[in-house]
Computed example of a mutant assay.
Amino acid sequence: MSMNGNWLRVSPDELERARTDLTWAYELAMTARDDNSGRWTATDKAWNGLDFLLDRLGFEIPLVLGAEAFVEVPDVEPDSEEMFDFRYLLA
């Protein structure tokens, strides 16, 4: 199993709207991807390598979670089974 990273460049207004309208954000991302927009890019399987290298350089923004949280994530240990319990998202 691997994790593929995808990036969409958005304006501050678009980011604010995405926080409250995830369906709109998804549609925006898929349209940019399908149109081969310069706003969309993918790191594919290099994602973990980039995260590792930037972490070693002391980069302070967690790339895997991003700089902006869309949902409140419970305070759990990263490698614990609780980390993969997504039931709280359905509440």
Rank of each mutant, 00 (worst) to 15 (best):
P62N: 15
L89E: 08
A32D: 12
R19W: 03
D85R: 03
L90F: 15
A18G: 04
E68G: 02
L54F: 15
N48M: 10
R87M: 01
W7C: 08
E81G: 02
S2L: 09
F70M: 13
G58W: 07
N48E: 14
D75Y: 03
D13G: 03
M1N: 04
L28H: 02
D79C: 09
N6C: 07
D55R: 15
V76A: 11
R33G: 00
W7E: 03
E81T: 04
L57Y: 12
L8R: 05
Y88G: 03
E60S: 13
E77H: 13
D75L: 07
D55N: 13
T31H: 13
S2G: 00
E60R: 13
L90N: 11
M30D: 09
D55V: 03
T43R: 00
R87G: 08
L8K: 00
R39F: 01
E72F: 02
W47K: 04
A32T: 05
K45E: 09
L57V: 08
V76Q: 09
M3V: 13
E82L: 10
L50H: 10
R39N: 06
P12A: 10
N48S: 13
R33T: 01
M3T: 11
V76M: 04
V64I: 14
T23C: 04
T23M: 11
R9G: 02
E72N: 10
G5C: 05
Y26G: 01
D85Y: 06
E60K: 10
P78I: 12
S2T: 11
T23D: 14
D13C: 02
D44Q: 14
S11N: 04
G66F: 08
T31R: 15
K45W: 06
L22N: 08
F70N: 10
N48L: 13
V71N: 06
G58K: 11
L53V: 15
E16Y: 00
S2I: 10
N36G: 09
T23I: 14
N4W: 12
R33Q: 11
V64T: 10
A25D: 11
E68N: 04
F70A: 04
R56F: 02
L50N: 06
D13Y: 02
L8I: 11
T23R: 15
L28F: 01
G49H: 14
